[in-house]
């Protein structure tokens, strides 16, 4: 539903034809969600069918037909701004499936799966941080107090979402690792010694692993 509503939101600022709407949409969403013009016109046709937009006069010299919102369309846009986006249905996520299977599958080293994923996520985070630096200060010394233009701000919103998503993933990986750590050796690794009831051998000040980081040594059977 997000693309039709986004197009309606753009049209709430005035009539526009398809190619113009496409360009505006991409510029204002950090170029993260490319559209093709055909998709835009198909969507506009559906919106017209549903009574949310109407052609605003005839075609121009190049045959382009501008569209404008109807009152019902304007109401839809208002409702959209005023309603939270429903995030309660989790997306199908390969990593979640993979890790959930890894911790329950014999002979799969879930620890190693986490470790590889964490390294990849951290590298990704580093790349995004570089992109952010280039976005906010291309070729310039850092000027964090500078005020971004609206378009740059949209780019930042999209990039920061990706950064926070990767950060959340890293935290989640650390947490799953801690869960594994506390669960002790997996059945597949039961050839090794059973968890010992001995106190930790680490530094007395060593607190339980933080949610940010928890990576047990393979033989570590604490907790």
């Amino acid at each position: 539903m997000s693309v039709p509503l986004s197009l309606l939101a753009l049209l709430s600022q005035g009539p526009a034809y398809g190619a113009r709407i496409k360009a505006e949409f991409e510029a204002r969403t950090g170029h993260a969600f490319p559209l093709n013009v055909g998709q835009v016109y198909t969507t506009l046709a559906r919106l017209e069918r549903d009574g949310l937009v109407v052609p605003d006069g005839g075609p121009d010299d190049e045959g382009r037909i501008p569209y404008r919102l109807t009152d019902v369309g304007a109401q839809q846009v208002s409702t959209w701004w005023e309603s939270p986006v429903d995030r309660s249905e989790p997306a199908r996520d390969e990593l979640v499936m993979k890790l959930a299977l890894a911790v329950a599958t014999p002979r799969v080293d879930a620890q190693a799966v986490i470790q590889r994923q964490r390294a990849a996520a951290m590298s990704h985070l580093q790349g995004l941080t570089r992109a952010k630096l280039a976005l906010t200060a291309p070729g310039q010394p850092p000027q964090p107090a500078s005020i971004p233009t609206p378009t740059t701000l949209s780019d930042q919103v999209v990039l920061e979402h990706r950064l926070y998503a990767v950060e959340a993933e890293l935290r989640w990986l650390d947490h799953v690792e801690e869960l594994l750590h506390r669960a002790g050796p997996a059945p597949a690794a039961s050839a090794g010694p059973a968890p010992a009831a001995t106190p930790p051998s680490g530094p007395p000040s060593a607190a339980p692993a933080s949610p940010n980081f928890a990576r047990p040594a393979p033989s570590d059977t604490r907790h």
Binding site: M122, L125, V166, E167, R171, N212
Partner: peptide, 10 residues
Amino acid sequence: HEARHAGWAD
């Protein structure tokens, strides 16, 4: 402690 901050590192 913050992965987000570590993202600035090489």
